[in-house]
Design a binder for these strands. Structure first.
Lengths: 230, 230
DNA sequence: CCAAAAGTGTTGGAACTACACCCATGA
DNA sequence: TCATGGGTGTAGTTCCAACACTTTTGG
């Protein structure tokens, strides 16, 4: 079937940078492209937007299709738009404008499953990335910058989103790891604890971790109604 | 002439929120649509992206065509992307995804000239806007939020951009008006002067204004290489 | 008993807020 | 001479950064 217009139309795709923190390091979900162009190259999961679906909806659909990250797993998690990337020639096939998104998923939790046009789907440490298809290195850099901006200098309105890296119940050390990973700076433990308690209402669950061969840590949850199911 | 694709393509447009400060109030450039849909309605200047042009380039071309704001007048001024807006049904004709931009032009300086499909082009005070076409009220609100974010709580990396509201040579009172207009808060004169001098290198031009029926004010210029031609 | 991470307060400096009066000009 | 906006300093407070030792558990 063919679609005809009176004047030329670009194609529109979405791409999503899925960040997580694995073993204390920032990781991104990438897929290996199973079809040209850039076949065999790693890329952000994404694809063409359906004519009836919203941009974010399309991005989530592609995430499920290519990387096995279902809307279910993303429910309650932040999903931000980073912006549109539309330099002519960024796709060798035709003029393609992509709208990029950013999401944060809990640490050590989401398993990637390749399907449709993805040959593989894997987590990569952000500071050890392969070469990327299209202008995805550029997009990913802007996603990383947006992530930093969530908590930089002063807190953005969306700063709560970074708690999405944490499990529902977390220790203050885990929280510190998250903030250190995002900002790239080492934080002083006592100051961090004062600071986080001053800026967020943390509910002390009156429970402790166990199993570590060290003193057990108190477990907290982000208080108020600020966080939905993770 | 017709253009045919194997699968449906949305149309892609750009829209730009041009902000200025006129008589101490934040204004936005709007055009009155001369053609359907929303004929006779006010809207952000914008239009379809050419197949060979970059998104920002297309936005600037449309700005010149519809509102008479030439790339020349915009040279050296900030031009930020706000994001993509693509809800299905936002344009009654077909699926249209728009990429929105934001620019800041010097106070009391830019004259608007309507042409092509714009019946009129005028400055509107931001807090006294007419009904807008499409989802432009939504886009404009996000543009306004982005403007605030430039200088909110702590300064963003792009905070210099707000000096674009000022003429090349400006008084500290004019600068104070700009910051007050953007933040919406009244600032204390002595504190503002200390603060702006602490955060920016201002070159004292050793000149004074004249003509006001009051004490002349010292003129400054934004120092360093931070500002190109305004 | 040893290794490993959890937990805990105080102090000095920097940055921000609040606040009131005199000055130079044009009409 | 008056109306108008331009120009100036200090003191109190708040927030942030620096800093070291004790506790609890598992092996």
């Amino acid at each position: 079937m063919a679609y005809t217009y009176d004047y030329p139309h670009p194609a529109v795709t979405t791409d999503t940078a899925v960040f997580s923190i694995i073993e204390g390091r920032l990781h991104v979900a990438l897929i290996e492209r199973g079809a040209p162009p850039f076949k065999g190259c790693w890329a952000l999961p994404g694809g063409f937007v359906g004519m009836e679906e919203d941009l974010a909806e399309g991005a989530r659909r592609e995430l499920a299709e290519e990387a096995g990250v279902t809307p279910d797993q993303l429910s309650g998690l932040p999903f931000f738009q980073i912006g549109a990337f539309g330099a002519p020639g960024r796709d060798p096939r035709e003029r393609v404008i992509t709208v990029a998104f950013l999401t944060l998923v809990p640490m050590d939790r989401v398993t990637l499953v390749a399907s449709t046009d993805a040959a593989r789907a894997e987590w990569f440490a952000y500071d050890d990335l392969p070469a990327l298809a299209f202008d995805h290195a550029d997009i990913l850099a802007q996603a990383r910058a947006a992530l930093s901006r969530l908590v930089s200098t002063d807190l953005s309105a969306d700063a709560d989103a970074v708690f999405s890296f944490l499990p529902e119940e977390f220790t203050l050390s885990q929280a510190q790891t998250v903030f250190e990973t995002i900002t790239g700076a080492a934080l002083e433990k006592r100051n961090f604890r004062k600071w986080i308690k001053a800026h967020w209402e943390l509910e002390d669950l009156q429970k402790k971790t166990s199993g570590g061969r060290h003193r057990p840590a108190a477990l907290f949850r982000l208080g108020g109604a600020r966080r939905q199911a993770g």
